[in-house]
């Protein structure tokens, strides 16, 4: 009889502890994301990008310079290869324009195309041109602490607050020291795995830890992946508004 009572009390203690743990974890998720957002979504960014696209044995390298302000105001211009030289992209909110020097024409790309491949890479136009504040767009919960490549990471599950988010759910592994996404899996609303992103290099720039090299795999394609290497990274610098205009996009 006594033994049964002990077991009952023990069970109740475990349940209470679990609940407290979950409550704390929920608060932690918000805290973690706040710190991640601080690192990943500065006021402005300027960097050079080298995209190395691996497609079924073929390797293409493309270089561009990207200017970004806030979450989704970006301008990128390609310097190489020769075929893409001068191709420029302007992202303002959900609108995206592309200037094609071969046709000397600017083309507006509609909303759904933002999810399509960016210049043949495994990144989408959205992936490449936005710096989302995750805390404002996703509900998150911590699912545990794990080891990833010898470092301690938080495992998080994120669910979009808006149904039309590019990725409805995400699984993230966040470095517990630097608060940078070390790896993430992006899923469709149906639960289908769309992409896997792995961070390969992180740089400390001022007070922020910023992703300097990443690898993206589009799981809807076979035998492809893209590495994106960011160099000459400048954060929180002044970028004139004239940079993000159609006139600038079409400037030869």
């Amino acid at each position: 009889m006594k033994r049964g009572l002990y077991l009952l009390v023990l069970g109740m203690v475990i349940m209470v502890m679990s609940s407290i743990n979950l409550l704390l974890a929920s608060e932690s998720a918000a805290e973690i994301l706040k710190k991640v957002d601080y690192n990943q979504a500065p006021k402005s960014v300027i960097y050079d990008v080298r995209m190395v696209i691996h497609q079924k044995g073929r390797v293409d390298t493309k270089q561009m310079k990207l200017y970004g302000v806030g979450e989704d105001k970006s301008y990128a211009i390609f310097g190489s290869p020769e075929r893409d030289k001068g191709t420029a992209v302007l992202r303002l909110g959900n609108n995206l324009w592309m200037y094609l020097p071969s046709a000397e024409k600017t083309i507006k790309i509609s909303g759904h195309m933002l999810r399509q491949s960016f210049m043949g890479s495994d990144f989408s136009y959205s992936d490449s041109t936005e710096r989302l504040k995750l805390l404002e767009r996703y509900d998150a919960k911590v699912t545990g602490k794990e080891q990833l490549n010898g470092r301690e990471v938080y495992a998080l599950e994120l669910k979009a607050q808006q149904a039309d988010a590019n990725y409805f759910t995400r699984k993230m592994w966040i470095d517990s020291e630097w608060y940078v996404v070390a790896k993430q899996e992006m899923y469709a609303k149906s639960g289908k795995l769309l992409k896997v992103m792995t961070v390969l290099d992180i740089q400390q720039i001022g007070s922020r830890y910023f992703v300097a090299k990443t690898r993206m795999e589009d799981k809807l394609k076979q035998n492809t992946f893209t590495e994106m290497v960011m160099t000459n990274i400048k954060l929180d610098v002044e970028i004139p508004d004239s940079m993000f205009t159609l006139q600038n996009l079409e400037r030869k």
């Binding site: 075929r83 046709a103 024409k105 083309i107 210049m119």
Partner: peptide, 16 residues
């Protein structure tokens, strides 16, 4: 007119 297509390597390209 302008034709805007995705190339064999999935990159956008346009010609008049």
């Amino acid at each position: 007119l302008t034709l805007f297509a995705r190339t064999l390597y999935n990159s956008p390209y346009g010609l008049n």
